[in-house]
Design a protein around this nucleic acid. Structure first.
Length: 557
RNA sequence: GCUCCUGUAGCUCAGCCUGGAUAGAGCACUAGCCUUCUAAGCUAGGGGUCGCAGGUUCAAAUCCUGUCGGGAGCGCCA
């Protein structure tokens, strides 16, 4: 539709296609038309009053309008276009009646790494933002027809695991890990001897001491299994679990040799192997712009292993135009840049990275927002949040005497709450807000779907494929337009790796449907055949859109 | 001290990339709407120095500079 207006303007102005496309905008309200062309730019080149230009253009254009455009009007310096609603509605409904409306067949191979939380405890709500964003990106890219591999990098070589190993008693369960971790953290901070013990244990592990390796494995297995279970309640699954311990020593020698050749690797005063990054932008961001690859005792650090791991992932995509994506917290921005600059030295690209800001907890006394902390036990566990939300969903269902799956509602509420904000904004977690299912929430979206389903269900027997397009009212037009925006929104979300666009879109779509639902009776109306198709189009679009966030729909709730 | 992100209604957020018409939602508040398809809904209303100060521009929430508040980071944790 926009193309038609663009080509019309190309013929009648001296502007280029790209320029016109940039200038055209959507007017602030419906009475002003469907598209607008501000004449300020033309005013400059023609050295004429923009109001006059708009007037003149509207006169010229009105004489020979294509059938898709019903009217052109000038309003001040703006030229407003009104499209033929029936033609638009038919075009969009034809597309959206397709079950897989919006999907594509891009066919690229994509590797994505997300979650990768320390396997030291049950994940908290803050860290779950990583998984929920990552999973949504996976779904978006799959929907567009890509072959997506999901990887979870298990940090099983860590001080945290060593600490857990010290606190671990045979028979401890996943649910004991958090308390173990909190207790041992406290002890370590009070007793520096323990710290030494931890490093000794870690060293034993790295030198493959059998007993230590077995102990670490036992703990990590419990944790990974526990985390997997929780994520699977959220429909979040992984194709590969890549263990950091696999990269101890692997390629490390080779990589260090390659770094040596760049002339940027050196031993510092304290015997650490360090990569000089003074030639990069990092020089402004660190007191000393270096990247430490190995401890003074010669053992490799996580960065070195991460580089090996990343190179391995990059190599999998060699020669394809696939994408390599990683989801990381904002605390890893600088670290990731260090990795990227290091890889650059070796001639490798680095993954596309999505950083997200933390979920903050409101302190009940000071009112200040604070980061969640596993170590201090100041956190909301994802599992507790999940259970609490199910409870609320169950009681809401009971209250209304309706049906619906409380688990699906809880997952929808939580995912939507995690996705609706822009990635680089902090989320302020509050129970009150999270457990409210009205308005801008996951359950509202699911409810809108159920309403649409309810209409369609009543019509089981008399469904026809034919429909007449009547005069289209305001709420119908708004809904049609929103449905038509879906592919564009999806494309942008996939390019910018930003699921919040999908969340915001879904809300607008549902809201528009509810307005339509209220103002326009479907069943038994004169416009029944058309409105039914519109409802079906909406339902397809919302289902697909919610699917991109991993939110399931229900026919009743 | 330096670097990145962020600041829009009482609260939670869109809009900023790509500058344009009266700055949009949700929650909360006020007043309505269930003998029509599910009231987890809809309609109407009050509520805004778009942190602050400069600058660029015919035009700034949007771009630039500075400044203040919040979050994150800045060598042997991952």
């Amino acid at each position: 539709m926009k193309d038609i207006i663009v080509s019309l303007l190309i013929k009648n102005t001296k502007l280029q296609k790209a320029e016109i496309e940039k200038i055209i905008e959507i007017p602030p309200n419906y009475e002003m038309g469907d598209y607008a062309f501000p004449c300020f730019t033309l005013s400059k080149t023609l050295k004429k009053n923009p109001v006059e230009i708009a007037l003149e253009l509207s006169r010229v254009l009105s004489k020979k309008l294509p059938k898709e455009i019903s009217k052109v009007e000038n309003k001040g310096p703006y030229l407003n276009f009104f499209i033929e609603r029936k033609i638009l509605a038919k075009e969009i409904i034809t597309q959206a009646l397709n079950e897989s409306y919006g999907s594509e067949k891009q066919g690229n191979k994509i590797i994505i790494e997300h979650t990768s939380v320390n396997p030291n405890a049950s994940p908290h709500v803050g860290r779950s933002r990583n998984s929920i964003i990552g999973d949504s990106i996976v779904r978006i890219l799959k929907f567009l027809g890509n072959k997506v591999e999901t990887h979870y990098y298990v940090n099983d070589v860590s001080k945290q695991i060593a600490m857990l190993a010290l606190a671990y008693k045979k028979g401890d369960k996943f649910s004991d890990m958090l308390n173990n971790y909190i207790k041992i953290s406290k002890k370590v901070s009070e007793n520096s001897k323990l710290e030494k013990e931890i490093f000794e244990l870690l060293e034993k592990f790295e030198s493959k001491d059998k007993k230590t390796v077995a102990l670490f494995k036992e703990i990590v297995d419990i944790c990974v299994k526990g985390q997997k279970e929780i994520f699977s309640k959220f429909g979040i699954e992984f194709d590969y679990f890549d263990y950091e311990s696999e990269y101890v020593g692997k390629y490390s020698e080779d990589i260090l040799k390659k770094f040596e050749k760049t002339g940027k690797l050196f031993k510092d005063d304290e015997g650490r192997l360090v990569l000089d990054l003074a030639h990069t932008p990092i020089t402004r961001k660190m007191k000393a712009p270096v990247f430490v690859l190995a401890r003074s005792n010669g053992t490799g650090l996580y960065g070195l292993r991460d580089i090996s791991y990343t190179i391995e992932k990059m190599n999998k995509l060699k020669g394809t135009n696939g994408r390599n994506i990683i989801i990381l917290g904002e605390d890893q921005k600088l670290y990731f840049e260090q990795i990227a600059e290091s890889l650059k030295l070796l001639g490798y690209n680095s993954p596309e990275v999505v950083h997200y800001s933390f979920v903050l907890l409101q302190d009940s006394e000071t009112g200040k927002a604070k980061k969640m902390s596993t170590r201090r036990g100041e956190l909301v566990l994802l599992e507790d949040f999940y259970n609490e939300t199910i409870k609320r969903a169950t009681s809401e269902i009971k209250k209304r005497e309706t049906k619906g799956d409380p688990k699906k509602i809880a997952v929808g509420a939580i995912k939507y709450a995690m996705l609706r904000n822009d990635n680089d904004k902090n989320i302020i977690f509050s129970w009150e807000h999270s457990l409210n299912f009205e308005g801008d929430s996951g359950p509202y979206l699911q409810y809108s779907y159920a309403r649409a389903s309810s209409i369609l269900k009543k019509l089981k027997n008399k469904r026809t494929s034919k429909y007449d397009i009547p005069k289209i009212n305001e709420s119908e037009l708004k809904l049609v337009k929103l449905i038509s925006n879906f592919p564009e929104t999806l494309k942008k979300a996939s390019q910018t790796l930003n699921p919040s666009l999908i969340a915001n879109y879904s809300f607008q779509l549902a809201q528009s449907f509810n307005e339509f639902y209220h103002s326009s009776q479907v069943l038994g109306s004169e416009e029944e055949t058309f409105r039914l198709k519109l409802v079906e189009s909406f339902r397809n679009t919302l289902r697909n859109s919610l699917g991109l966030m991993g939110i399931e729909v229900m026919d009743e709730m």
